[in-house]
């Protein structure tokens, strides 16, 4: 194994280990996709699952597989990819290993917009408030961009401060709205907890083109972000256009985080933890970090969702609750075991 020195990292895996790890991550994801279809709050034999997928008929259990578990699995996959990649982007952009998509106010913007839709406009169906969430995330991120831009250009630190401030204001306004309308709070409870249950595929298809474009955009800026990790001056010396790279990265992460939040609500911890793990495996190379995040994040989301389906049978725990419970101790364990990786 070849070891290279990188900024802030102790060891960097060699060229063989990265692709190998990626294949392992892909296999893990494939297994979890399968388990997500096989395991649910109802016990359905694997043979019925097989028939539901390949020899469909009108059986009740087959409907359960095709109408609920399959869409839920696809939603988990899409939301996981978006959260993981947006987390990797925000950490690279802000050079802050503790950053997650919420730091730019994405969650706060989406939550506030959904509260307005539910509380003031009476929208109750997720298909109705999906676009409110997306619009809220986009508008707030643009607002944060504007507030975070100084005469010298945009600064990651100022942007983060602007994001935290806007999120605090919107969080307060959202809570005030919810307190005046307890029904709205009840209707938003599941969305606020972060859940992929009960989401029809109709909420995924409209968002998918934006997410796909954002994934492409993320890999386009991965190289310049690598250079920016060495410092702005060195990046400029290597021909990187800082403002353009930052703008493209922010567009990509907003589309990703906004889309994921619109579908599943503010699912915490995935966007923070997964890029960390990816960086420990790959070292400070953004393309690899992005690729690993795209595979590891949906694995975490699906594993947490499966766990949430079985621990409280016949009821379920929202995936956002499980990711927080599972993710936090895992991250602490990793941090204690290894040196925190740099950016």
């Amino acid at each position: 194994m070849t070891l290279k020195e990188g900024p802030g990292t102790a060891t960097v895996p060699g060229p063989r280990r990265r692709p190998l790890g990626l294949i392992v991550a892909l296999l893990v994801l494939a297994v979890l996709l399968l388990l997500s279809v096989l395991i649910g709050s109802t016990r359905i034999p694997p043979s019925v699952v097989w028939d539901a997928l390949f020899h469909s008929s009108a059986g009740i259990d087959q409907f359960a597989i095709r109408d609920y578990r399959m869409p839920r699995t696809i939603v988990g996959l899409v939301v996981g990819v978006a959260l993981g990649l947006s987390g990797a982007l925000i950490q690279a952009l802000t050079r802050n290993p503790l950053a997650d998509p919420g730091i730019l106010g994405v969650h706060a913007g989406a939550s506030f917009a959904v509260t307005v839709a539910v509380g003031l406009l009476g929208v109750r169906d997720i298909r109705g408030y999906l676009w409110f969430a997306y619009a809220g995330a986009l508008i707030v991120t643009l607002m944060v961009l504007a507030l975070g831009s100084t005469r010298q250009g945009s600064s990651p630190v100022v942007m983060v401060l602007a994001g935290v401030s806007v999120a605090a204001v919107l969080g307060g306004a959202r809570e005030a709205l919810q307190l005046t309308d307890p029904d709205a709070f009840d209707a938003m409870r599941s969305w606020n907890a972060g859940s992929i249950a009960g989401r029809p595929l109709e909420v995924v298809w409209p968002v998918l083109p934006f997410l796909t474009a954002a994934v492409v955009l993320a890999f386009v800026v991965a190289g310049p972000l690598n250079a920016m990790a060495l410092g702005d001056e060195l990046a400029v010396a290597q021909g990187v256009r800082l403002a353009r790279t930052r703008a493209l990265a922010i567009i990509a992460l907003t589309l990703l985080a906004g889309g994921a939040t619109a579908i599943g609500g503010p699912i915490v911890f995935v966007g923070l933890m997964v890029p960390h793990v990816a960086r420990w495996i790959t070292g400070p190379h953004q393309r690899w970090i992005f690729a690993y995040s795209i595979l590891l994040a949906p694995s975490l989301v699906l594993a947490s969702d499966i766990l949430g389906r079985i621990v409280m049978r016949p009821g379920e725990i929202p995936v956002g609750v499980v990711t927080a419970f599972v993710g936090a101790p895992v991250l602490i364990a990793l941090v204690r075991r290894k040196k925190a990786s740099g950016l």
Binding site: G40, S41, I60, D61, A64, Y68, G198, P314, G315, E316
Partner: peptide, 13 residues
């Protein structure tokens, strides 16, 4: 008090 997922509608049979 227990919210049942739709996939358990089948249990009503």
């Amino acid at each position: 008090w227990t919210a049942l997922p739709f996939e358990q509608i089948g249990s009503l049979s």
